[in-house]
């Protein structure tokens, strides 16, 4: 029996990614888009018309990552104007920074919006409570994957915890359904201050596909300030890891 286990260990090999800051994702991964202005913008108009999220504006030409589901259909409509790169570094401290403009080569990470408390309290250990309020399970699985053998975010002191009383912050996924609004509020209130609020996924950032749904109640955002906005459908574990590392002041390089 021990030989069987040794065989599993041997096949398993070393799985942890040694240096998370140098990860490159698959070529086809749809991450941060790049926009280009051209003389003829008719294709962008077509792309804006088909976009299921209304994330594209023609004049001025912008693409809102807080709404985008990264389906990639616009890049096929307007090949000269929109191109999805495999850059996963998309987290921002201000909602408006998620709106991508032509010529932009990185999503800005505005340091001025990071509260001093965050750097002082959470740069060594950060315990997070995840709340799904209408998340579709893919994003919850990706957040779970941040702690798995491959990414192993726990080695840098970032973990998900069971009780909000033990947590330093809340990670919110999903558009915030009316049926979950109260439980979310109670959970957020239970976390001792100072606390972080991270919204994860396009649905959490803007309501996504359900922004107009009558089953959704986003009044939570009128009462609380978000520290980190993470786009994606679902947000890739590396997007989460990179942005949280940067928020804690631990990033080794600029974007």
């Amino acid at each position: 029996m021990i030989f069987g286990k040794l065989r599993i260990l041997h096949s398993h090999g070393r799985q942890a990614i040694p240096d998370l800051s140098r990860v490159e994702l698959a070529e086809r991964f749809r991450g941060r888009p790049e926009l280009t202005l051209t003389d003829d913008m008719s294709q962008v108009e077509q792309a804006a018309a088909i976009c299921p999220m209304g994330a594209i504006s023609v004049s001025p030409f912008t693409l809102d990552l807080g709404r985008c589901l990264f389906c990639g259909e616009c890049a096929r409509c307007a090949q000269h104007n929109i191109r999805f790169t495999n850059d996963y570094r998309m987290g921002a401290t201000r909602r408006e920074d998620l709106v991508v403009r032509p010529g932009q080569t990185a999503v800005p990470f505005f340091e001025g919006a990071v509260r001093a408390d965050i750097r002082r309290m959470f740069s060594r250990s950060l315990q997070l409570r995840e709340v799904s309020a209408g998340g579709d399970a893919s994003i919850e699985m990706e957040l779970g994957a941040t702690g798995n053998v491959n990414f192993d975010f726990g080695r840098f002191g970032v973990r998900f915890t069971a009780s909000p009383r033990h947590a330093d912050g809340l990670v919110l996924t999903g558009p915030v359904t009316s049926n979950m609004a109260e439980a979310l509020e109670i959970c957020y209130d239970s976390i001792p201050t100072p606390k972080l609020l991270v919204v994860c996924g396009s649905e959490a950032c803007s309501g996504g596909l359900f922004a107009e749904s009558r089953a959704v109640d986003r009044s939570f955002f009128e009462r609380h300030t978000v520290d980190l906005w993470l786009p994606g459908a679902p947000t890739h574990p590396m997007t989460f890891i990179e942005a949280v590392t940067r928020l804690r002041g631990k990033a080794s390089s600029e974007r």
Partner: peptide, 20 residues
Amino acid sequence: LGYQHRGVESEMTRSTNRLR
């Protein structure tokens, strides 16, 4: 259950955009 109710079925008929 019901905490996850987002209104998917009614959203399906909100617009005729089949990509959506």
